[in-house]
Design a protein around this nucleic acid. Structure first.
Lengths: 137, 137
DNA sequence: CAGGATCCCTCTAGATACTG
DNA sequence: CAGTATCTAGAGGGATCCTG
C-alpha cells in the first residue's frame, strides 16, 4: 500500500473533520454522510447518474425496493439537493427524477467508492469466510 | 459540472455493477457497500486511518457511541477484513485495533467522499432549508 | 481493560390497501 | 401513474450488570 494518500492532511484533522471537533453529534460532515448512507440512497443516485427516470421506471429498475422506500428515499435525496423532481401535467400525471448539479458532483466520489467495491469484493468475501471459519473453531 | 466523469464507463454499466444485473439482492457491490454503510463504520475507519487505537481510546475519541455499538461495529469491520484486532497479553489485557491493507485501500475512496462532504455541506444545508421552507407553504 | 449478556425501546423498512 | 396511510416485524441502538 502506498501511504502517501494519508498525508493529504494531518490525519487527526481528517478525523476531526468528521467528528465535528467539540460538538460531535452536530458535525456537518457526519450529517451529510448520513444522508448518503441509507440502504437505497447511493443505489438510486447511481441509477439517476445514467439518465433521468420516472417513478415507475425506477421501481422496475430496482425490483427489490418497496414503493414506500422509493418514495421516501427520493424525498430525502430531493431534500438534500441531490435530486430534482419535475411533475409533468399529463393525464395521468408523470413525474421525472434527475440528478442536480450537486448530485452529479456527489456522484464523483461515490462512484470511486463503488468502483473500489467492484474491484475488491472478492477480498471482502474471502475475509468474511476466513473470519467465520476461525471464529467457529 | 464537468460531465466527462460520467463517461468512465457506460452509465448503465455503472448501475448494473451496483444492481448485480440479474440477481439484485445478491449483488456483491451492494453487499460491500452495505458493510461500509453503517452509522459508525466509516467514522471508525476514518479514526483508525490516523493510527491504531485501543478499545477505550476509541470510546473516548467517539464519545457518542455506545460500548455495544463500538464492539459490534469493530467486529463487522474485522470480519470484512478492514480492521486488524491484536490482543496484547498484559494485565489487564489491552487490545489494539488497526487498519489492514484492505482497510487502508478502502480508506482512499472513502476519504474522497468525506472531503466532498466537507466542501459541500453548506450547499446541502441550504438545500434542506429551501426544501423545508417551500414544503410548508 | 475489553468486552459478553441481557433487557428494552425506538425507528426503520416492508407489505398491504387506498387516493388524486 | 405516482403517490399517501396504516400496520407490523425486525433491526438498530441505549443502559445496565457481569466476567476473564
Amino acid at each position: 500500500m502506498d501511504s502517501k494518500v494519508f498525508n493529504l492532511k494531518t490525519k487527526l484533522e481528517v478525523y476531526k473533520a468528521m467528528s465535528g471537533g467539540a460538538n460531535f453529534a452536530d458535525c456537518p460532515v457526519r450529517d451529510v454522510i448520513q444522508g448518503i448512507n441509507g440502504k437505497w440512497s447511493s443505489l438510486l443516485v447511481m441509477a439517476l447518474a445514467e439518465k433521468p427516470y420516472r417513478f415507475g421506471a425506477l421501481r422496475r429498475l430496482v425490483p427489490d425496493i418497496s414503493q414506500r422506500m422509493l418514495t421516501q428515499t427520493l424525498q430525502e435525496l430531493q431534500r438534500d439537493g441531490y435530486v430534482h423532481r419535475e411533475v409533468f401535467p399529463t393525464k395521468p400525471p408523470s413525474v421525472e427524477y434527475s440528478l442536480t448539479d450537486l448530485g452529479r458532483s456527489m456522484f464523483v466520489p461515490l462512484y470511486q467508492l463503488v468502483q473500489w467495491a467492484e474491484l475488491n469484493h472478492d477480498a471482502v468475501r474471502e475475509a468474511r469466510a476466513a473470519f467465520d471459519a476461525s471464529s467457529q473453531a
